[in-house]
Protein backbone atom coordinates (compact mmCIF):
# COMPACT_ATOMS: atom_id res chain seq x y z
CA UNK A 1 0.00 0.00 0.00
CA UNK A 2 1.52 3.30 -0.95
CA UNK A 3 1.76 6.22 1.48
CA UNK A 4 -0.69 8.35 -0.50
CA UNK A 5 -3.45 5.78 -0.05
CA UNK A 6 -2.60 5.40 3.62
CA UNK A 7 -2.82 9.17 4.12
CA UNK A 8 -6.18 9.30 2.37
CA UNK A 9 -7.58 6.44 4.45
CA UNK A 10 -6.28 7.87 7.72
CA UNK A 11 -7.81 11.19 6.68
CA UNK A 12 -11.21 9.54 6.19
CA UNK A 13 -11.03 7.87 9.57
CA UNK A 14 -9.99 11.16 11.13
CA UNK A 15 -12.99 12.89 9.59
CA UNK A 16 -15.23 10.14 10.96
CA UNK A 17 -13.86 10.61 14.47
CA UNK A 18 -14.32 14.38 14.31
CA UNK A 19 -17.85 13.90 13.01
CA UNK A 20 -18.60 11.51 15.86
CA UNK A 21 -17.48 14.19 18.32
CA UNK A 22 -19.77 16.78 16.73
CA UNK A 23 -22.59 14.23 16.75
CA UNK A 24 -22.07 13.50 20.42
CA UNK A 25 -22.28 17.22 21.11
CA UNK A 26 -25.55 17.45 19.15
CA UNK A 27 -27.02 14.41 20.92
CA UNK A 28 -26.00 15.75 24.30
CA UNK A 29 -27.38 19.20 23.54
CA UNK A 30 -30.67 17.81 22.25
CA UNK A 31 -31.26 15.77 25.36
CA UNK A 32 -30.31 18.76 27.49
CA UNK A 33 -33.31 20.61 26.09
CA UNK A 34 -35.68 18.37 28.02
CA UNK A 35 -38.07 20.65 29.88
CA UNK A 36 -38.73 20.14 33.57
CA UNK A 37 -36.39 19.00 36.30
CA UNK A 38 -35.22 15.44 35.88
CA UNK A 39 -34.62 14.96 39.57
CA UNK A 40 -38.07 16.26 40.37
CA UNK A 41 -39.54 13.80 37.88
CA UNK A 42 -37.47 10.92 39.22
CA UNK A 43 -38.25 11.47 42.87
CA UNK A 44 -41.84 12.61 42.44
CA UNK A 45 -43.58 15.64 43.96
CA UNK A 46 -43.28 14.38 47.53
CA UNK A 47 -39.48 14.43 47.64
CA UNK A 48 -37.78 16.50 50.30
CA UNK A 49 -35.52 19.35 49.12
CA UNK A 50 -32.57 17.55 50.74
CA UNK A 51 -33.19 14.42 48.71
CA UNK A 52 -33.52 16.48 45.53
CA UNK A 53 -30.22 18.29 46.25
CA UNK A 54 -28.50 15.01 47.08
CA UNK A 55 -29.57 13.29 43.94
CA UNK A 56 -28.75 16.38 41.92
CA UNK A 57 -25.23 16.27 43.23
CA UNK A 58 -24.98 12.53 42.74
CA UNK A 59 -25.99 12.96 39.09
CA UNK A 60 -23.61 15.89 38.64
CA UNK A 61 -26.55 18.04 37.58
CA UNK A 62 -25.23 20.95 39.62
CA UNK A 63 -22.20 21.26 37.34
CA UNK A 64 -22.26 23.38 34.18
CA UNK A 65 -23.36 21.63 30.97
CA UNK A 66 -19.90 21.72 29.45
CA UNK A 67 -18.42 19.84 32.41
CA UNK A 68 -21.15 17.23 32.27
CA UNK A 69 -20.54 16.85 28.54
CA UNK A 70 -16.83 16.29 29.16
CA UNK A 71 -17.60 13.79 31.90
CA UNK A 72 -20.10 11.97 29.74
CA UNK A 73 -17.65 11.87 26.83
CA UNK A 74 -14.93 10.55 29.13
CA UNK A 75 -17.22 7.79 30.35
CA UNK A 76 -18.20 7.02 26.80
CA UNK A 77 -14.59 6.47 25.85
CA UNK A 78 -14.29 3.90 28.65
CA UNK A 79 -17.50 2.16 27.67
CA UNK A 80 -19.39 3.67 30.61
CA UNK A 81 -22.69 4.94 29.28
CA UNK A 82 -24.07 6.00 32.65
CA UNK A 83 -27.10 4.65 34.48
CA UNK A 84 -30.69 4.51 33.38
CA UNK A 85 -33.00 6.93 35.17
CA UNK A 86 -35.84 4.45 35.00
CA UNK A 87 -34.36 1.45 36.79
CA UNK A 88 -30.84 2.59 37.79
CA UNK A 89 -29.27 -0.21 35.76
CA UNK A 90 -26.07 0.46 33.84
CA UNK A 91 -26.98 1.61 30.35
CA UNK A 92 -24.20 -0.53 28.87
CA UNK A 93 -25.80 -3.58 30.47
CA UNK A 94 -29.28 -2.68 29.25
CA UNK A 95 -28.02 -2.15 25.74
CA UNK A 96 -25.74 -5.19 25.60
CA UNK A 97 -28.21 -7.99 24.94
CA UNK A 98 -30.54 -5.78 22.92
CA UNK A 99 -27.69 -4.74 20.65
CA UNK A 100 -26.87 -8.36 19.92
CA UNK A 101 -30.51 -8.94 18.92
CA UNK A 102 -30.49 -5.98 16.56
CA UNK A 103 -27.17 -7.01 15.07
CA UNK A 104 -28.60 -10.49 14.49
CA UNK A 105 -31.55 -8.94 12.67
CA UNK A 106 -29.26 -6.66 10.65
CA UNK A 107 -26.87 -9.46 9.75
CA UNK A 108 -29.72 -11.71 8.60
CA UNK A 109 -31.17 -8.88 6.53
CA UNK A 110 -27.84 -8.00 4.99
CA UNK A 111 -27.02 -11.63 4.26
CA UNK A 112 -30.38 -12.00 2.62
CA UNK A 113 -30.64 -8.75 0.69
CA UNK A 114 -27.07 -7.99 -0.43
CA UNK A 115 -26.73 -10.96 -2.84
CA UNK A 116 -30.25 -10.52 -4.20
CA UNK A 117 -29.91 -6.77 -4.61
CA UNK A 118 -26.48 -7.05 -6.22
CA UNK A 119 -27.77 -9.57 -8.70
CA UNK A 120 -30.88 -7.59 -9.53
CA UNK A 121 -29.02 -4.28 -9.68
CA UNK A 122 -26.41 -5.61 -12.10
CA UNK A 123 -28.82 -7.58 -14.28
CA UNK A 124 -31.28 -4.71 -14.62
CA UNK A 125 -28.38 -2.49 -15.64
CA UNK A 126 -27.24 -5.00 -18.27
CA UNK A 127 -30.73 -5.46 -19.71
CA UNK A 128 -31.63 -1.83 -19.29
CA UNK A 129 -34.98 -0.97 -20.84
CA UNK A 130 -36.12 -4.59 -21.05
CA UNK A 131 -39.40 -5.80 -19.59
CA UNK A 132 -37.47 -7.37 -16.72
CA UNK A 133 -35.72 -4.07 -15.97
CA UNK A 134 -38.95 -2.10 -16.11
CA UNK A 135 -40.77 -4.57 -13.85
CA UNK A 136 -38.01 -4.57 -11.22
CA UNK A 137 -37.56 -0.80 -11.41
CA UNK A 138 -41.29 -0.18 -10.94
CA UNK A 139 -41.38 -2.35 -7.84
CA UNK A 140 -38.28 -0.61 -6.55
CA UNK A 141 -39.81 2.85 -7.00
CA UNK A 142 -42.99 1.67 -5.30
CA UNK A 143 -41.10 0.25 -2.29
CA UNK A 144 -38.91 3.34 -1.97
CA UNK A 145 -41.94 5.61 -2.12
CA UNK A 146 -43.82 4.06 0.77
CA UNK A 147 -43.10 4.15 4.50
CA UNK A 148 -41.47 1.08 6.10
CA UNK A 149 -44.55 0.49 8.20
CA UNK A 150 -46.60 0.11 5.04
CA UNK A 151 -44.21 -2.54 3.74
CA UNK A 152 -44.48 -4.26 7.11
CA UNK A 153 -48.27 -3.96 7.06
CA UNK A 154 -48.46 -5.45 3.60
CA UNK A 155 -46.07 -8.25 4.57
CA UNK A 156 -48.29 -9.10 7.53
CA UNK A 157 -51.41 -8.97 5.39
CA UNK A 158 -49.94 -11.23 2.74
CA UNK A 159 -47.93 -13.72 4.78
CA UNK A 160 -49.91 -13.82 8.01
CA UNK A 161 -53.49 -12.82 7.22
CA UNK A 162 -54.06 -14.19 3.72
CA UNK A 163 -51.55 -17.01 3.40
CA UNK A 164 -51.38 -17.79 7.11
CA UNK A 165 -47.76 -18.92 6.85
CA UNK A 166 -46.25 -16.81 9.59
CA UNK A 167 -47.37 -15.41 12.91
CA UNK A 168 -48.56 -11.82 12.72
CA UNK A 169 -47.58 -9.29 15.35
CA UNK A 170 -45.98 -11.55 17.92
CA UNK A 171 -42.37 -12.36 18.48
CA UNK A 172 -42.20 -15.83 19.97
CA UNK A 173 -40.04 -16.57 22.98
CA UNK A 174 -39.37 -20.18 22.01
CA UNK A 175 -35.90 -20.41 20.55
CA UNK A 176 -35.21 -24.12 20.87
CA UNK A 177 -36.80 -25.10 17.61
CA UNK A 178 -34.81 -23.86 14.60
CA UNK A 179 -37.98 -23.67 12.51
CA UNK A 180 -39.66 -21.52 15.13
CA UNK A 181 -36.70 -19.17 15.19
CA UNK A 182 -36.75 -18.86 11.43
CA UNK A 183 -40.48 -18.18 11.48
CA UNK A 184 -40.04 -15.61 14.18
CA UNK A 185 -37.33 -13.76 12.29
CA UNK A 186 -39.03 -14.07 8.92
CA UNK A 187 -41.42 -11.13 9.10
CA UNK A 188 -38.94 -8.48 10.32
CA UNK A 189 -36.25 -9.74 7.97
CA UNK A 190 -38.59 -9.79 4.96
CA UNK A 191 -39.77 -6.27 5.69
CA UNK A 192 -36.30 -4.87 6.22
CA UNK A 193 -34.93 -6.72 3.20
CA UNK A 194 -37.56 -5.19 0.97
CA UNK A 195 -36.75 -1.66 2.11
CA UNK A 196 -32.98 -2.10 2.03
CA UNK A 197 -32.88 -4.06 -1.25
CA UNK A 198 -34.93 -1.45 -3.04
CA UNK A 199 -32.38 1.22 -2.18
CA UNK A 200 -29.51 -1.08 -3.04
CA UNK A 201 -30.91 -2.19 -6.39
CA UNK A 202 -31.56 1.38 -7.41
CA UNK A 203 -28.08 2.59 -6.55
CA UNK A 204 -26.24 -0.47 -7.91
CA UNK A 205 -28.14 -0.20 -11.18
CA UNK A 206 -27.26 3.47 -11.49
CA UNK A 207 -23.57 2.77 -10.74
CA UNK A 208 -23.29 0.00 -13.33
CA UNK A 209 -25.16 2.01 -15.98
CA UNK A 210 -22.79 4.91 -15.39
CA UNK A 211 -19.74 2.69 -15.95
CA UNK A 212 -21.27 1.02 -18.99
CA UNK A 213 -21.33 4.45 -20.62
CA UNK A 214 -17.52 4.74 -20.32
CA UNK A 215 -15.58 4.93 -23.61
CA UNK A 216 -13.47 1.91 -22.66
CA UNK A 217 -16.60 -0.23 -22.61
CA UNK A 218 -17.44 0.95 -26.14
CA UNK A 219 -13.82 0.20 -27.05
CA UNK A 220 -14.21 -3.36 -25.77
CA UNK A 221 -17.36 -3.66 -27.88
CA UNK A 222 -15.40 -2.49 -30.92
CA UNK A 223 -12.83 -5.19 -30.20
CA UNK A 224 -15.60 -7.72 -30.67
CA UNK A 225 -16.15 -8.45 -26.97
CA UNK A 226 -19.37 -10.14 -25.94
CA UNK A 227 -21.86 -8.37 -23.71
CA UNK A 228 -20.95 -10.47 -20.71
CA UNK A 229 -17.25 -9.73 -21.24
CA UNK A 230 -17.96 -5.99 -21.48
CA UNK A 231 -19.82 -6.09 -18.20
CA UNK A 232 -17.72 -8.55 -16.21
CA UNK A 233 -14.24 -7.58 -17.42
CA UNK A 234 -14.58 -3.88 -18.13
CA UNK A 235 -17.54 -2.34 -16.33
CA UNK A 236 -17.66 -4.23 -13.02
CA UNK A 237 -14.01 -3.82 -11.94
CA UNK A 238 -14.49 -0.09 -12.31
CA UNK A 239 -17.88 -0.07 -10.61
CA UNK A 240 -16.73 -1.74 -7.37
CA UNK A 241 -16.20 1.58 -5.61
CA UNK A 242 -19.65 3.00 -6.46
CA UNK A 243 -21.36 -0.35 -5.78
CA UNK A 244 -19.81 -0.76 -2.33
CA UNK A 245 -20.73 2.83 -1.63
CA UNK A 246 -24.30 2.09 -2.68
CA UNK A 247 -24.41 -0.96 -0.42
CA UNK A 248 -23.07 0.90 2.58
CA UNK A 249 -25.52 3.73 2.08
CA UNK A 250 -28.43 1.33 1.68
CA UNK A 251 -27.43 -0.63 4.74
CA UNK A 252 -27.53 2.63 6.65
CA UNK A 253 -31.25 2.66 5.83
CA UNK A 254 -31.37 -0.38 8.06
CA UNK A 255 -30.80 1.93 11.00
CA UNK A 256 -33.92 3.93 10.20
CA UNK A 257 -35.96 0.92 9.14
CA UNK A 258 -35.08 -1.05 12.21
CA UNK A 259 -36.73 1.53 14.47
CA UNK A 260 -40.10 1.02 12.77
CA UNK A 261 -39.76 -2.70 12.23
CA UNK A 262 -38.76 -3.51 15.81
CA UNK A 263 -41.70 -1.47 17.05
CA UNK A 264 -44.22 -3.16 14.77
CA UNK A 265 -43.04 -6.68 15.43
CA UNK A 266 -42.30 -6.02 19.08
CA UNK A 267 -38.76 -7.24 18.52
CA UNK A 268 -36.49 -6.90 21.59
CA UNK A 269 -33.72 -4.91 19.85
CA UNK A 270 -31.92 -1.70 20.64
CA UNK A 271 -34.29 0.42 18.55
CA UNK A 272 -37.28 -0.79 20.51
CA UNK A 273 -35.34 -0.06 23.67
CA UNK A 274 -34.73 3.46 22.47
CA UNK A 275 -38.35 4.10 21.49
CA UNK A 276 -39.37 2.90 24.94
CA UNK A 277 -36.71 5.10 26.51
CA UNK A 278 -38.16 8.05 24.63
CA UNK A 279 -41.58 7.44 26.11
CA UNK A 280 -40.15 7.26 29.64
CA UNK A 281 -37.71 10.11 28.94
CA UNK A 282 -34.81 8.05 30.11
CA UNK A 283 -32.03 10.41 29.04
CA UNK A 284 -28.84 8.35 29.55
CA UNK A 285 -30.45 5.45 27.76
CA UNK A 286 -31.50 7.64 24.81
CA UNK A 287 -28.02 9.13 24.63
CA UNK A 288 -26.37 5.72 24.69
CA UNK A 289 -28.63 4.27 22.01
CA UNK A 290 -28.26 7.35 19.82
CA UNK A 291 -24.46 7.16 20.00
CA UNK A 292 -24.52 3.50 19.00
CA UNK A 293 -26.72 4.25 16.00
CA UNK A 294 -24.47 7.10 14.89
CA UNK A 295 -21.39 4.97 15.38
CA UNK A 296 -22.94 2.28 13.18
CA UNK A 297 -23.83 4.80 10.53
CA UNK A 298 -20.40 6.43 10.51
CA UNK A 299 -18.69 3.03 10.38
CA UNK A 300 -20.67 2.09 7.29
CA UNK A 301 -19.96 5.39 5.56
CA UNK A 302 -16.28 5.24 6.42
CA UNK A 303 -15.99 1.67 5.13
CA UNK A 304 -17.61 2.82 1.88
CA UNK A 305 -15.14 5.69 1.55
CA UNK A 306 -12.16 3.47 2.26
CA UNK A 307 -13.29 0.84 -0.24
CA UNK A 308 -13.80 3.55 -2.84
CA UNK A 309 -10.21 4.68 -2.30
CA UNK A 310 -8.87 1.13 -2.47
CA UNK A 311 -10.90 0.36 -5.59
CA UNK A 312 -9.46 3.30 -7.52
CA UNK A 313 -6.81 1.84 -9.82
CA UNK A 314 -5.05 5.18 -10.11
CA UNK A 315 -4.36 5.11 -6.40
CA UNK A 316 -3.78 1.39 -6.09
CA UNK A 317 -1.00 1.13 -8.67
Amino acid sequence: MNPQVLTLILGRIGVAVVTLLIVSLIVFAATEMLPGDVVQILLGQAATPEAVAGLRQAMNLDQPAIMRFAGWLGGLAQGDLGHSYANRMAVAELIGGRLANTLKLAALTAGFSVPIALMLGITTAIWRGSLFDRAVSSIVVAVISVPEFLVATLAVLVFAVWLGWLPALSFGGDTSDIWAVLRAYAMPVITLSFVVSAQMIRMTRAAVIETLKAPYVEMAFLKGASRSRMVLRHALPNAIGPIVNAMALSLSYLLGGVIIVETIFNYPGIAKLMVDAVSTRDLPLIQGCAMIFCLGYLTLITIADVVAILANPRLRH
Binding site: A214, P215, Y216, E218, M219, A220, L222, K223, R233, H234, P237, N238, P313, R314
Partner: peptide, 16 residues
Protein backbone atom coordinates in the same frame (compact mmCIF):
# COMPACT_ATOMS: atom_id res chain seq x y z
CA UNK B 1 -11.89 -3.98 -38.92
CA UNK B 2 -10.17 -2.35 -35.98
CA UNK B 3 -10.63 1.01 -34.29
CA UNK B 4 -8.23 3.64 -32.94
CA UNK B 5 -10.19 6.07 -30.75
CA UNK B 6 -9.89 9.84 -30.46
CA UNK B 7 -9.09 9.83 -26.79
CA UNK B 8 -6.95 6.87 -25.89
CA UNK B 9 -6.92 8.11 -22.31
CA UNK B 10 -10.65 7.39 -22.06
CA UNK B 11 -10.60 4.25 -24.21
CA UNK B 12 -8.28 2.30 -21.93
CA UNK B 13 -9.80 0.59 -18.92
CA UNK B 14 -8.08 2.23 -15.93
CA UNK B 15 -8.26 -0.96 -13.87
CA UNK B 16 -6.39 -3.31 -16.22
Amino acid sequence: VAYVPQSAAAAFNPAT
